[in-house]
Computed example of a mutant assay.
Amino acid sequence: MRIENQHNAILENAQRLTKNISKSGLSIYDEIPIGDPDLWIPSQELELLLNEELSGLELGSLPIRTRSKVVKTKICEVLGYPVPSSFKKTKPRFLGQNFDTYTQKSNNLQIWNEEISSSRRYVLIRVSSENIITKVKVVTGDMLASLDNTGTLTQKYQARLILGNEVSELVSENNTQNLDSVMVAEAKTPYYTTNPTDYPTAGTLLSIETIFEKLKAIVGKSFPDLGSDQERNRGAELHRLVCQHLGYSNYKDDGRFPDVKHQLLEVKLQTSPTIDLGLFSPDSKDILDIPAINGRQIRHCDVRYAIFFAEIIEGMVRITHFFLTTGEDFFKRFPQFQGKVLNSKLQIPLKKDFFD
């Protein structure tokens, strides 16, 4: 029932936004501030809405270019935009909502002549062998990079974890000034009706000191190691512990940044000194794809990073150290070194279950 209620709430918000867009008279080329509570469609709303409206659409045996135009026309109609007489070759194509579309019949995603952008959204549309749209996924550039296992996409940002004398270290004593300005003194502890993936609000964002006090108890905890090729599942076990210690009654992960969206908290499990940061530089002032809080846009550098170092001994992962920092202060504690820049003309093999 809780999942159904959340689904309906997301869909209602998406429909509210599309009605606002329709009334605004804006075109797909008119830029909208990221996080605008009345016109910007966040990724989870965008994905749900496009799935509701595009799934089942028959494309027949249309040529690729015609098929692309038909899909983009339908997306305009779904989102409340007027259909342009011709689609400009802007980057991205849907400039106002900052996304590109890729209609996929195969499991190879091809992105030509430009680097993957960390802030851009990529709308991936699955087409069956019968030329019917079956599923839509909305991902960021960083999520795309995490899908690649060929080595074509490499980490653009990396940092080094250097252990100190303390097993628990609060690197940032305060939130960023931007985040502090929207927080209230007595935030509510998460309760049973709240999901870790809900959008943050001024009344529910815990202070960085409170998060530190709640999470430092994880040091010393252990859980079974699922194998060297199971990093994602290891991370999920830690994520579960983090949600539990923050006071959530359930664990949920939608695969989007940051991990615990409701607390603007990214969780990282380290068993080696190299911290892979993907396409997101923690101190970036780029705007995060979430609704503005009390009219203030939230930036990547406002996100709090919980970094846990662990040892793997006799089949168990044991947490030995914990660090908590804002993105703004991240590189003050963890020295940055540059990873490889992403190549253009990329071909990314999508996993068989990617659209499931």
Rank of each mutant, 00 (worst) to 15 (best):
L205V: 01
H7E: 09
L265E: 03
K89I: 15
L288H: 01
G164Q: 06
M143L: 00
F94E: 04
L59D: 13
F280V: 13
K91C: 00
N149T: 13
V260W: 06
S43G: 00
H239Y: 15
D259Q: 12
L324E: 08
E53Y: 11
M143T: 00
N108C: 13
V317F: 10
S272Y: 14
R333W: 02
R160P: 00
N13H: 11
F337G: 04
A14T: 09
V138S: 07
G203W: 13
S27Y: 04
S55K: 14
G327N: 03
D276I: 00
A236T: 10
F355M: 11
T194N: 03
Q104M: 15
L277M: 08
R318M: 14
P33T: 01
G60M: 01
G25D: 03
N195Q: 12
E53T: 06
F87Y: 06
T154C: 08
I41H: 05
Y305K: 13
I218R: 07
D36R: 00
H7Q: 05
L59V: 10
T90N: 09
M316W: 05
L288A: 03
F308W: 13
N113M: 07
I307R: 03
P42C: 07
K188A: 12
E115S: 10
R296Q: 14
T103Y: 02
Q336A: 15
H262N: 15
Q158H: 10
T320H: 05
C243W: 04
S129P: 01
Y199H: 13
L48T: 10
I275V: 08
P282V: 05
G315L: 12
H262L: 04
W112R: 15
L95H: 10
H321F: 02
P224R: 04
V123I: 07
K19H: 04
S281W: 01
V139E: 12
Y305R: 13
C243T: 08
K261P: 00
A9H: 05
P273W: 13
D356C: 10
I10F: 06
Y305Q: 14
P42S: 06
C243I: 06
W112G: 05
Y192L: 01
E311Q: 13
A217K: 03
D289Q: 02
D100Q: 08
L59T: 13
S249W: 01
E77W: 01
T201P: 09
G35R: 04
R304F: 14
L39K: 07
L206D: 03
R296M: 11
S272P: 09
L238W: 12
N20T: 09
V127S: 05
I116N: 08
N174E: 15
L170C: 12
F354I: 02
N250C: 10
K137I: 01
S129G: 05
Q97R: 05
V219L: 02
I10Y: 07
L215P: 04
K88D: 08
E130F: 03
P190D: 11
N113L: 07
F309D: 14
K156V: 14
E186D: 15
G151H: 07
V267M: 06
K137N: 06
R16D: 07
E115C: 04
R299A: 15
I132M: 00
N13F: 05
E169R: 12
I312K: 15
T90C: 03
D30W: 02
F330Y: 06
G203I: 13
N131I: 08
M1K: 02
G96V: 03
D283F: 03
N5F: 11
A202Q: 00
Y102W: 09
N13Y: 08
T197Q: 11
